[in-house]
Design a protein around this nucleic acid. Structure first.
Lengths: 101, 101
DNA sequence: CGTGTAAGGAATTCTGACACG
DNA sequence: CGTGTAAGGAATTCTGACACG
């Protein structure tokens, strides 16, 4: 059930700029590099979630350390795989648990 | 600590319209009647929180039942007082608890 | 590669008002 | 009282491009 406020794409780019301190140019560029995935309204304006905002802040600090967008993307993929692996392991444990009762 | 995503004023009126189904006219009118209190950006555009969105949905259903905005506001005040009363009672209990240990 | 900027258009939002009831 | 709408202006956002490096 991933329908929390944190994931809802409702924030305009102007507010994201205020929240993160990043220029709109940068925000759009990180999307182009596929580091974030805003939604679009019917007429094409971008909408971000609080999750996206947090990701942007992480991107910002990595960029400050000189990390390139490509590397950031690789890190994201690793983190994602770790998450899936953990998720599956938990599923297995639950399966075992259910077998026993 | 009321700094959760739910309270952050980051949503434009267009999205609030999509989320609630209310016309922008209605949304602005309920503000005029002091039922909701959006923030304003530096240049004057309204920003709402998820909390405001929820309140709007409650307002919407009360209006459908024919409840007038004035009455809705009174209900809000009652709910608010109840909240404060409960909050204080809890504070008292905590105080007593702390006395004993 | 990452980011700034000027350009022109399209979409958004704002206010005050008139309308109806 | 509650809500729609047309009006005109101001602010927002979008894309594609040129610039620098």
């Amino acid at each position: 059930m991933t329908s929390s406020y944190k994931e809802k794409k409702v924030i305009g780019i102007g507010i994201v700029h205020e929240l993160t301190g990043l220029s709109e140019r940068k925000i759009r560029y990180y999307e182009e590099r596929e580091l974030i995935f805003p939604a679009r309204t019917a007429k094409g304006t971008r909408k971000y979630s609080f999750s996206d905002v947090e990701m942007l802040m992480e991107i910002a600090s990595m960029r400050e350390e000189g990390v390139q967008t490509t590397e950031i993307k690789q890190d994201m993929n690793k983190a994602q795989k770790r998450k899936i692996r953990d998720h599956m392991r938990r599923g297995q444990l639950n399966a075992q648990f259910n077998m026993r009762k």
